Simulated scan of single mutants.
Amino acid sequence: MPDMNNGALDIRQLEAFVAVMSAGSITGAARLLDRSQPAVTRQIRDLEAEIGYELLHRSGPRISPTPRGVLFHVQVERLFFGLKHIRERAAAIGAGALPAIELAATPALAAGIVPDALAAMDPALLPRQIHIEALSAEGVVQQVLSQSADFGLATLPIEHPGLDVHWIGEAPCLAAMAESDPLASLDVVALADLAARRVITMANPYRLRRRVDEAFAAAGIAPRELIDANASLTALALARRGLGIAIIEPAAACGLPIKGVVLRPLDVTIPFLFGAISPVARPLTPSIAALNEALLKSAAALIPGFVLRDAAGTEMLADAVYGAADNQEARS
């Protein structure tokens, strides 16, 4: 394998690889880059020779990424994303303008409360460039830890020594259903009402899904059928089509209401917990500080039953997230 420490990778080779991954073919990549097809082919082969492994499977005119190619593409995309933002920040510094805002948030929070928060901010504090990346909660944490994002909104748990937690919000989950569903006539939906129904819930077993499962177990109920999804908007869309009753976090459900979907409180409290984070000991710019305040106000205004929790009360918070018994065992 070549020693890559002997020289830097060629940016044109990396551009060719990213273009091939985006277009799905050498021909398409050549069009995107305004280069000849032989030039793109040569650049990909030179890149493979430099790093010491194949990035693409070739079968006649058809290509597909190798497993290593998929992993390498993630790293290259991150590099290009960072270079783009460096150019923008350099231009802002040169112009004496506000630095760009790099915000990472889970899809539910990005769609549910971020738009209202940005709309409520003083326009003088909004930079020309605002980047919003919707990621898993784990992805949000990693982006903030690596300082690829200035600020993040993620569901709990988010405890990490590399993070400053600015505030934590809690609100009860809701039941979402088609407006034609018989349960839509109720003021409150009981978990017992869902025993014979298909339930739609979240897939991640370490966050909201865990609390949903614990609520059913405590009530002695096992849903007859289950659909899980990795995004709240998907769960709401499934509920709208009458495919089941969704137990949903309230941020997306209330911040981005969907026509044909009815929301009802549950007879038990299933807490949805989320927080605002930034890299530890990194002062907030005036724009980020204003965004932080606007996000908190937006969450309080949009989400029914929103309660501000003590971000410093990590032990109490861990009990709320994982269950007191689990955490007592972990601490003993």
Rank of each mutant, 00 (worst) to 15 (best):
5 N>Y: 11
12 R>Q: 11
18 V>E: 13
19 A>W: 02
22 S>M: 03
23 A>V: 13
24 G>Q: 01
27 T>M: 15
28 G>S: 05
28 G>V: 01
29 A>C: 05
31 R>K: 13
33 L>D: 04
36 S>Q: 14
43 Q>G: 09
43 Q>L: 15
52 G>C: 05
57 H>C: 13
64 S>N: 06
69 G>A: 02
69 G>P: 00
71 L>F: 01
75 Q>R: 13
77 E>G: 10
84 K>I: 05
88 E>N: 14
92 A>G: 12
95 A>H: 10
97 A>K: 09
100 A>F: 04
105 A>K: 00
106 T>C: 01
108 A>I: 02
108 A>C: 06
112 G>L: 03
113 I>Q: 12
118 L>M: 07
123 P>C: 06
124 A>R: 10
125 L>V: 05
125 L>D: 04
127 P>K: 07
128 R>M: 09
128 R>Y: 05
129 Q>P: 00
129 Q>K: 14
136 S>E: 00
142 Q>K: 10
146 S>I: 04
149 A>Y: 01
151 F>Y: 12
154 A>C: 06
154 A>E: 01
156 L>R: 14
159 E>S: 04
165 V>E: 10
170 E>Q: 11
173 C>N: 08
173 C>L: 12
176 A>P: 02
181 D>A: 06
184 A>H: 01
185 S>N: 09
187 D>Y: 03
191 L>Y: 00
194 L>D: 01
198 R>E: 09
200 I>P: 02
202 M>D: 00
203 A>H: 12
206 Y>C: 03
208 L>Q: 08
210 R>T: 07
212 V>R: 02
223 P>S: 09
224 R>H: 10
225 E>D: 13
226 L>Y: 08
229 A>R: 12
230 N>Y: 09
232 S>I: 06
234 T>Q: 15
239 A>W: 05
241 R>W: 12
243 L>Y: 08
244 G>E: 00
249 E>C: 03
250 P>L: 13
252 A>H: 15
253 A>E: 03
253 A>W: 12
254 C>Q: 02
255 G>L: 03
257 P>Y: 12
261 V>S: 06
262 V>Y: 00
268 V>S: 09
268 V>R: 10
273 L>W: 10
273 L>Q: 06
273 L>K: 11
275 G>Y: 13
278 S>Y: 06
281 A>I: 00
283 P>D: 08
287 S>V: 07
292 N>D: 15
295 L>Y: 10
296 L>G: 09
296 L>K: 15
298 S>E: 02
303 I>K: 10
309 R>H: 12
310 D>R: 07
316 M>Y: 12
320 A>Y: 06
322 Y>Q: 11
324 A>Q: 14
324 A>R: 15
326 D>R: 14
329 E>W: 11
330 A>F: 11
331 R>G: 11
331 R>Y: 08
